[in-house]
């Protein structure tokens, strides 16, 4: 499904100075697997998510990424989405003046267009989106609002999961979708992921805390520190991290 080899990337800060963030990431995700990436702040987890989705702010200096055999790094963000990649944003963007329903329908029909499927008409779309909203516990009034504008943190994240349910990606990356969520919203997010889970669809769940992983049980847990994955293991690794913190792994990495 996804093969990342020796990925290195930097970003230019306000002073235009290059700051290396990814220092050689290796990661292989097979169909149907759920991978969790954990790690302290600033370790490069969100950068990895953004680079995979095609954010232009990062310069890639080395390595390659293949998604179902396609060279992902040569594709535009919309081509990646059409190929089946989805990023649930850590900070979903507010777009005043763009109606949420219009946005969802345009997105869905863009993806359908790529799959050579006819666009959904307004009626079919409406019944589909309403049923998905019920699944994530979102009020229908959010359809007529502007995209994420004035949404609470939880509403924004539910809106991300709603988009994921609508677009049915092959690989979904959840970038700290659990941060700042109350327990109801957390369960709604987990439910959204678990509904989509099947033998072929894969997930990368980026998180600080083990808490989300009790609802979304991962197959593999990775720890990312200073731009590298320094340890991988089963779900018990997440539990160990919760108990001991990242300190012991960071120290190990420096040796």
């Amino acid at each position: 499904m996804l093969v990342i080899r020796d990925l290195q990337a930097f970003i230019r800060d306000e002073k235009q100075e290059a700051k290396q963030i990814l220092c050689g990431v290796h990661l292989t995700v097979k169909p149907g697997e759920v991978h969790a990436i954990m790690g302290p702040n600033g370790s490069g987890k969100s950068t990895l998510s953004n680079v995979l989705a095609g954010h232009e702010g990062y310069q890639i200096t080395q390595g390659d990424v293949h998604f179902e055999g396609k060279d992902l790094l040569t594709l535009s963000p919309e081509e990646r989405a059409a190929a089946g990649l989805f990023l649930a944003f850590q900070y979903p963007v507010e777009i005043p003046g763009v109606n949420n329903m219009y946005f969802l329908r345009t997105a869905l029909n863009s993806i359908r267009h790529h799959k050579n499927l006819p666009p959904l008409d307004a009626m079919d779309f409406l019944s589909l989106v309403k049923s998905k909203m019920k699944e994530v516990g979102m009020d229908e009034k959010f359809l007529s609002r502007a995209v994420n504008e004035g949404f609470s943190g939880g509403e924004k994240k539910r809106n991300e999961v709603l988009q994921m349910l609508m677009l049915e990606p092959k690989l979904a990356i959840l970038d700290e979708t659990d941060s700042g969520l109350d327990i109801d919203a957390l369960q709604a997010v987990a439910k959204g992921v678990n509904t989509l889970r099947n033998g072929t669809r894969s997930f990368i769940v980026v998180t600080h805390y083990q808490r989300l992983l009790t609802y979304i049980v991962p197959d593999v847990v990775h720890v990312m520190v200073k731009g590298k994955i320094i340890q991988s293991g089963g779900k018990e690794l997440a539990e160990a991290l919760e108990a001991k913190g990242y300190g012991w792994l960071e120290n190990e990495a420096e040796v």
Binding site: A53, G54, H55, E56, S76, P77, E78, R80, A81, A82, F86, L87, F89, P92, V93, I95, P96, G97, V98, F103, T106, A107, S110, I111, H114, A146, Q163, L167
Partner: peptide, 21 residues
């Protein structure tokens, strides 16, 4: 970027943002 990441082509995304303005 947000619109593009949902599969909306850049030219159309630009149009959507301009219209929203």
């Amino acid at each position: 970027f947000y619109l593009q990441s949902r599969g909306i082509p850049k030219t159309q995304a630009l149009k959507i943002v301009m219209n929203a303005f």
